[in-house]
Design a protein around this nucleic acid. Structure first.
Lengths: 204, 204, 204, 204
DNA sequence: AGCTAAGCGAGACGGTACGTCTCGTCTTGAG
DNA sequence: CTCAAGACGAGACGTACCGTCTCGCTTAGCT
């Protein structure tokens, strides 16, 4: 702990005027607001600057793109709500996590945010990496701890690749968010989790 | 209605100069070429027009966006290679289809194309619908015919929702294309298909 | 004749949409208006575009800087009023020309324009050259025709370098415009012309 | 002792509070350096601060614009070399002064400085006045003393307006610096001075 | 054969956002 | 205190692409 704090202090030599935290907060809030209003194309450096009465130079000093701002705001607002904990059986745990994710996508502005971030990441490798490193990976690591425990408890068949398990449970949720080829609702999640748990083969 | 009108139009070509098919072909080729060269952001109406020595007005007469052009070129080039057929057992069939898709994404320019199309579709509902209607749905329908047969043959557990099955097998492939959070290779596909077939639960 | 017409037609291949003359006129007018309102720093590509409801891209397609626009507007408006003609004696001619120039500088917006153009030309070689080639040189050449005639008439001492004569009569007017170190009025012009004509040396 | 201590402090600005005069000198030197490197637009508060490792706040505390800095540096460096003294005849004196000015403009960085200062003065009344009050007027006053003596000596025709004389001899030099419509060299100066002395009229 | 309509290349045009730059003010910590 | 470092609001810069529009030319089928 102390070491970390020292390292942190050393990383902040604190020359010059310190960064204004109120500006940061305001910018993040404004970006999410803009996305919330419906038109993805309104999330623009220009618009954020005008709306938040912040200079474009300040935006570019700290963020490289509008979606980077939205993503940081998203992380700030959401990461605490996305914690992996056991809730009863393995099935209940998976279903609960899937439901939380689905509700995040459908009931809040964060569906738009994720869609925008993933879209922009296709032409922005930095954002791509930030998305994986700051959102996908931490969540998957937390999930794996829980799933590994389930495996030790005997709920999970030994030999199951946890990464693949996470893929087949959660990727369909992301993809229905992105392509809307089929509804994303509770009924779907139940079928999804149950199919994953039992498998589709008639053998065994 | 539309079908009848189209048939009529095809039967009685309109007055005036007919659409040049060579222009269409050239434009589609050029769009794919631009994507192939690496920078997604280079796929621009302006660039396509300049490269193909075609007027911007002509582009806008027939297509609504650069990604619509790329998508049409993609469909032209690819649809014939993506046909669902049985190849031995259910496992072999699924693995073969997954492999074809993966190779399409990783070995050719079409990975870029799909990434760009899905990205743009997030802010372009028309493109969204065209992507689902012209690519996703036909493929899924073809797949379901094959899978329904497998179910009748007893290879597939009765009661399995075929949509969910398709989701859990193929969506992870799309998502690794989009987020690159983990490698997209043959080893992954094998684990993926086997996990889906057998399920992850230790219960019977 | 036919050949000339053909050459003219060949010189104007007229491909594409022709340039809008109304836009050109509007832009020039707007630039002069902006200068007229007092603040030189308001003459900005941004301001001209906004005021004339013209796209910045259009401005940059045809002009390279705000002062280039102002200068072209100045030339359009002024060149016809600046013609060298004899008006009586050599003294009267010089005084009349000097007066016209002075009034151009002091009674109209064109003083601002010239000041701005000369100022910007200090960091803009293109504008520098355009100023000399399109304004200074033509006027000087016209002047030299008149002065050469005066020399043939015996009003002007043989051997006088006409360039130097033009310099010593007109450069002080420009410089009082630029530095305002002393008033620029009719009384000054009279002393100026008379001093130039007679010389300052007590000899001869 | 005190001198040594001061020198020490000046040599080691890091130890203890740096002396404001060393900052002033450094800033002036840096501004002239920047102009010397060719691009007038590089003379910027930002650039001076960065190059001299001086805070922008310090610059703004003492000067109002980059050209004000350059002008002060110019005055410091140049005023001692521009002294009006008799050198032989009136013609020789005028020619000598003109030559000094021309060489200042063409052989050193000060041509750039003057051009920049006059240019900026067009939109900066303060600078305008400072230029006249600190450079133009003192030089003209010094000149007038010398010329008045020449008039008393009988070299200069009685009744000549000394201001006009100074205008017609020196303004053409400034204007060739500013517009470059014709070369600024010794040959020109000779013709200039001789024409001014003798006059251009053929009449007596 | 002439007419008519659409396809087409060229490119001007109004917009909008981009990302950068400089200005002038400010807020901190160091000496 | 003075000064460095540097954050910040403001706003112009010049570029890129968008989507629309006017041109003149071409290419067909229709009268």
């Amino acid at each position: 702990m102390m070491i970390e704090e020292k390292a942190l202090a050393a990383a902040k030599p604190k020359r010059g005027r310190p960064r204004s935290d109120s500006v940061r907060t305001l910018v993040l809030k404004t970006a999410l607001e803009l996305l919330q209003e419906g038109d993805t194309r309104a999330l623009t450096m220009e618009n954020i600057a005008a709306r938040a009465r912040v200079s474009k130079a300040t935006l570019y000093r700290w963020w490289s793109s509008p979606s980077a701002i939205a993503f940081e705001g998203f992380l700030d607002a959401v990461s605490q709500h996305l914690t992996w904990t056991r809730s009863g059986t393995l099935r209940e745990t998976l279903l609960s996590q899937a439901t939380v994710l689905m509700q995040l996508f459908t009931r809040t502005t964060f569906g738009c945010t994720i869609r925008r971030v993933i879209a922009d990441a296709q032409s922005n490798p930095e954002l791509q990496q930030a998305f994986v490193a700051s959102f996908i990976s931490p969540r998957r690591n937390a999930a794996k701890l829980v799933l590994a425990e389930a495996m030790r408890n005997g709920e999970l068949r030994p030999g199951v690749d946890l990464d693949v398990l996470l893929d087949i449970v959660f990727d369909p949720i992301y993809l229905r968010l992105l392509t809307r080829h089929a509804p994303l609702d509770e009924a779907f999640l139940i079928k999804l989790v149950d199919t994953v748990l039992v498998g589709v083969s008639s053998e065994r």
